[in-house]
Simulated scan of single mutants.
Amino acid sequence: MDDNLYDEFGNYIGPDIESDQGSEGEEEEDEDLPDRHVQEEGQQSDGEAPDGVSNGWITAANDVDMDNQIVLAEDKKYYPTAEEVYGEDFETLVMDEDEQPLEQPIIKPVKNIKFEVGVKDSSTYVSTQFLIGLMSNPGLIRNVALIGHLQHGKTVFMDMLVEQTHHMNTFDQKSEKHMRYTDTRIDEQERRISVKAIPMSLVLEDSNGKSYLCNIMETPGHVNFSDELTAALRLADGAVLIVDAAEGVMVNTERAIRHAIQDRIPIVVVINKVDRLITELSCPPRMLIIN
């Protein structure tokens, strides 16, 4: 080694060497080699890029974490499109099924909705002029409320009064049931229970044969319809309490008596369904005779 080319510390102090520039140029060329190598590899047959190469840049699979990327719900593709399944030659229609509610039948039946039974025979024993004459005299008018518990016979008792004052028979021989004249609603006829208080004007005679115009209000016996009972008692001058002979005093019977006493309305008690004492309770008939 020439001592003139190096100092005491070993640093080169000699003239410039031309080969150093070439080596530096080679190093610069070597730095470009990876890009050139990628470009040469990218220029394969049919212009296809190899795996991990995109537009001349090397991308590793681990560089992009696809699992952690946020994808919106509207951008997700859960099912293939109809065109992908059936092809372009088919026309596909997308329709919503089960749009019809479950309460509505597929084939709706023809139904005539009715709430009232209709106008019944109203031929009475007295003439219309006589009835109008009684209405013009307030002293001959009596407002009566027919009260009692459920299924104690108020509606059938009303049928007896209608049969007494009209040219008609309220008992059906085929069905062996009463007509239930005051049950004018269809649901009342089907359920065999009164829902609304029904007023009816009848001409009745007392023990002396004097005629009076009685506005009788037949009230429901169910506890849920006790408001109809209260309203009828507010309009009544007197009350007729129907009591089943076999069942006796029930819950709504006590309620009706309490309302009548509060309104200071006189009460007439009618013991109904006495035949149940003989047929169901096996009571001898001689015990039912009242002296």
Results as ranks from 00 to 15, higher is better:
D7F: 04
E8D: 12
E8I: 11
G14D: 06
E18M: 07
S19Y: 15
D32A: 15
D35Q: 15
V38L: 14
E41C: 07
S45I: 06
D46A: 04
P50H: 02
T59D: 08
D65P: 06
D67F: 10
K76L: 04
E83S: 12
E84F: 10
V94N: 07
E97R: 11
L102V: 10
I106T: 09
V110Y: 07
V110E: 08
V110D: 09
K111I: 11
K114A: 13
S122Q: 09
Y125L: 02
Q129E: 14
L134M: 04
L134D: 00
P138Q: 07
R142N: 03
N143P: 03
I147A: 03
I147T: 04
K154R: 13
V156L: 06
D159I: 05
E163T: 09
M168P: 04
F171D: 02
D172T: 00
M179L: 13
Y181H: 12
D183F: 12
T184Q: 13
R185P: 02
I186P: 08
E188M: 08
S194E: 09
V195S: 11
I198Y: 13
M200W: 14
L202D: 07
L202P: 03
S207E: 06
N208D: 07
S211A: 13
P220W: 00
A231E: 10
D237P: 00
D237I: 04
L241I: 00
A246R: 04
E247Y: 00
N252D: 03
I257D: 01
I261R: 15
I267F: 01
I271W: 08
N272M: 02
V274H: 01
D275C: 01
L277F: 06
L281T: 03
S282G: 09
R286L: 08
R286P: 03
M287S: 10
L288A: 05
I289Q: 09
